[in-house]
């Protein structure tokens, strides 16, 4: 009876989307912050190549975060 009432497929999809989006965006943004923090440290330590690498990783992660947010809003609005 309960299985009929509960929209299992929609609930599972909601749970999966929430988990992927919530954890995913948090992790990607953390990598962006890691890149920024490493860039500051490595720049002070006069290691420009490593600092540039950290900045690149951070920049890419930040771009990925913003893209994920935009995709999330578009997907939700299509419902």
């Amino acid at each position: 009876m309960l299985a009929v009432v509960v929209e299992t497929k929609e609930l599972l999809e909601t749970a999966a989307a929430s988990l992927v989006a919530g954890v995913g965006i948090t992790v990607i943004f953390s990598i962006a912050i890691w890149g920024a923090a490493r860039f500051v440290d490595l720049s002070r330590g006069e290691r420009p190549v490593a600092a540039a690498g950290a900045a690149l990783v951070g920049g890419l992660a930040l771009a990925a975060t913003l893209a994920a947010v935009a995709v999330g809003i578009v997907v939700m609005a299509s419902g």
Binding site: E7, S18, T26
Partner: peptide
């Protein structure tokens, strides 16, 4: 600040996903 970000990110993800399915 990290906890605030995680809490808000989790909340937004759950609400937006649920809204998509009309909950």
């Amino acid at each position: 600040a990290a906890q605030g970000y995680s809490a808000q990110g989790a909340g937004a993800a759950v609400i937006l996903s649920s809204t998509h399915f009309g909950f």
